[in-house]
Design a protein around this nucleic acid. Structure first.
Lengths: 146, 146
DNA sequence: TTTGATTAGTTGTATAAACAACTATATGCA
DNA sequence: TGCATATAGTTGTTTATACAACTAATCAAA
């Protein structure tokens, strides 16, 4: 019966996401050790800007699953670090378009390597087929709750 | 080749754990709607105290994958809410044993039902075998990074 | 027994998340 | 055109996390 597939004792780690927490912590540690003075949260914003320049804060909200105040403050901090710049949209004055500075652009290669390393360490003993299946399940979970 | 099983574009959701975030948010919403004035982080501490009374703060750190200051402050807040009580250990005066108050004990049944519901909603369309496999992978990830 | 190291917990500080309330601009429709 | 409504972003407040530095108690070994 679908309804009781989970027993209480098994709930916890699914809810807390201890695996993804561990991955994030490992990447954070690598960033620190490399002397890169950013948080993983900041990295996750940069990540989307490397893929597409000039996203609005609203688009960053959707991309990173954060609410608007969270993005406001992450962009604040990224601006303080001189990694991005707010540029008011010319067609809609409500909108800030966020652009990478040269310094922000320069971080892509090194940090993406560290992220690749992190995932390879996390998944080194897991066969690809299982990874795919796991990703599928996590996507379904996300869709079910959206 | 193991080393490149993950392409850059796929990194993000694994690192951010969007699925577990979604589960946690859903449970938080249920707690709020039920008028239960606690956070999921507080709930995650109570969860371990329901399983075993009188854990030390250090044991709570291990159980919940948090550092000591985090547990200090979670216990502070749970004490303010009158849900737990610090009791100095008689055999080792460094240690605080954390006990549930009556009010804290009373929350178990209702909140565990909400947690069960949450997971059932998250996993309703996922066959049990895949859930098992996914749990396995996440456990391996955790162990790889420990 | 004394002292040096370890363990348990606390405090300070910076960053981040969630929620509510707010401002400013844009849009849509009567 | 004008007003209600929606959208983009900011600010305030509370809670939580990570890290470093700290206090107090315990332990271990000379």
């Amino acid at each position: 019966m679908q309804n009781n597939q989970f027993k209480k004792g098994e709930l916890y780690s699914f809810i807390t996401g201890k695996a993804s927490t561990a991955i994030a912590r490992r990447l954070q540690k690598k960033l620190n050790q490399a002397g890169l003075n950013i948080t993983i949260e900041q990295w996750s914003v940069l990540y989307h800007l490397w893929k597409k320049h000039g996203l609005s804060q609203q688009e960053l909200c959707l991309a990173t699953y954060r609410d608007k105040p969270s993005i406001t403050r992450l962009v604040d901090n990224l601006e303080k670090l001189n990694l991005v710049k707010r540029v008011p949209s010319e067609s809609d004055r409500r909108i800030n378009l966020i652009y990478l500075t040269k310094q922000g652009q320069k971080m892509e290669e090194e940090t993406m390597q560290l992220a690749d390393q992190t995932l390879n360490e996390a998944l080194k003993t897991v066969p690809s087929s299982k990874i795919e299946l796991c990703k599928e399940v996590l996507q379904i979970v996300y869709d079910n709750l959206k």
